[in-house]
């Protein structure tokens, strides 16, 4: 009988990235039909808006959310930030930071969960002091990001969806490689030569094309720190005109 391993993904973010949070459902559904299924893995997504319920707790709302999301016991934490950092909790600048720090502390002890953090780099103009403070807190957090970690930039929800699909596929392929031929014997070797299912083929093709786009889409500028760089469309760039006085 086939044993299916369940991997739990938790998403943590402030409230200003609903499109990215919504994009995770179809991505996980797609992976469950392809890369995950091929490894007898089933991915589930935990998030506060669907898994928690109203109530009171001495530590505030985060005290209600923690025992349900159990971030320190999940397999993957996906953190998403744009211009809001969120509401402070008892021990952190926001609920999202609290969940990130919980996951980071657990990773340092047990090498789990795998933490994937994304920052939306699209242009934004704060309209109030409060918005400026929120954005500043995000930038502070980005600067304080642990040295062991690599965060990923994106500029729109569709790009985030493609990236997270590719990254989760990579994670599954690296963490759960499909059988060692010597260990699995000749039948596994024969199975490995079978053509992939149409769903897997489509998923692989899509992941490959997204990877290719990420390889070639930007023009590198020498002297730019890749971590701090962001992609800008020509329409969003304004270069102030300057005139040169005639001699």
């Amino acid at each position: 009988m086939k044993t299916v391993k369940e991997l739990r993904i938790v998403v943590a973010s402030p409230s200003d990235v609903p499109a990215e949070r919504a994009a995770l459902d179809p991505v996980i559904e797609e992976l469950n039909r392809g890369v995950a299924r091929d490894r007898n893995i089933h991915l589930t997504l935990s998030r506060w808006e669907t898994d928690t319920y109203p109530g009171f707790h001495p530590d505030g709302p985060q005290g209600l959310i923690d025992p349900i999301l159990k971030v320190d016991e999940c397999d993957v934490l996906i953190g998403i930030f744009w211009k809001r950092f969120g509401t402070p909790t008892k021990d952190a600048g926001s609920g999202t930071e609290h969940e990130f720090q919980t996951a980071y502390a657990a990773w340092k002890k047990t090498s789990k969960p795998h933490v994937m953090v994304y920052f939306n780099q699209s242009p934004y103009t704060p309209k109030s002091r409060a918005e400026t403070d929120q954005w500043g807190a995000v930038l502070d957090f980005q600067e304080r990001f642990p040295k062991e970690g690599l965060w990923w930039p994106y500029t729109e929800a569709e790009q985030f969806k493609n990236l997270v699909r590719q990254h989760l596929s990579n994670y599954l392929q690296n963490k759960f490689p499909i059988g060692n031929q010597k260990e699995l014997g000749p039948s596994a070797s024969t199975a490995a030569r079978q053509p992939p299912s149409p769903e897997l083929a489509a998923s692989l093709r899509s992941a490959y094309l997204n990877w290719m786009i990420e390889q070639v889409r930007a023009i590198p500028l020498s002297g730019v720190d890749r971590k701090k760089a962001s992609v800008r469309n020509r329409a969003t760039i304004w270069i102030w005109p300057r005139s040169t006085p005639a001699f």
Binding site: R217, A218, I219, V231, N233, R234
Partner: peptide, 8 residues
């Protein structure tokens, strides 16, 4: 710079 936006 986004390649598709600036390529000629």
């Amino acid at each position: 710079m986004d390649l598709a936006a600036v390529y000629t």
